[in-house]
Amino acid sequence: MLIIDKFAYTNKLKSINPRLKIGLSLTFIALALINKNMYFFIGIICGGFYATVFLAGIPLKNYMKMILIPFAFLLTSMIAILVSFSSDSDVFLYSIDLKFFYGGVTLIGLKNALLLFLRSMSSLVSLYFLTLTTPMDQQIYTMQKLRIPSLFLEIYSLIYRFIFILLEESLEIYRAQELRFGYINMKNSYLSLSILIKTLFVRVMRRYKDMQIVLDMKLFDGEFHIGKGAGGQENA
């Protein structure tokens, strides 16, 4: 359902030490942030691409699709950074006359935009390496080792578990609505979406009630014990 999560559990680098994977990715994200050298960026992008697609075996098609996810944000922002306005056309490399002022591209703007683009891509590729090769239970285990407070990790783990339950539910409700023409125009789309959110919410509250009973039956002592012992963590 969540494709990144799926690949994290099925990729070829799954059983590599998570501290290595996470350490490497975070190091490269940090290096990308402080770096200004274009070739270094290109190196990270190529290296990350190679490691994710060839070593971890993530299908190229899926990978490229994922890379495109933040592009709406990236491209809109690039335009904003690239284009400047001024009453003086001399500051621009290239400009057009907009009657009251000029709009154009400056050398610094161009350089900044290009660097920013490469830096974002480098960080993105590094982040993807982390998320696509490191299953969530390994990530949580590593956070535990880093002494992140256990209450935080408990809630974090619970949210992770429940995301999949609610995702499936919302998808089913959506499909049932769609098949009964719930999304054929704007007006009923709003109505259907509201119904979906309401239905989901009501079910979440019911689930809370039911699950508290289960907690009682399981002698809940106030703590959700995560990743304490064997099982799942052997290769972590």
Binding site: L151, E154, I155, S157, L158, I159, R161, F162, I163, I165, L166, L167, S170, Y183, M186, S189, Y190, L193, L196, I197, L200, F201, V204, R207, Y208, M211, Q212, L215, F220, F224
Partner: peptide, 22 residues
């Protein structure tokens, strides 16, 4: 038990963030 509620609410918020608004 409120941990459970926080978990459910968090997941709910995440799901809302993945829904598409017409």
């Amino acid at each position: 038990n409120k941990k459970l509620l926080l978990g459910l609410v968090g997941a709910f918020v995440f799901i809302l963030s993945a829904l598409k608004l017409p």
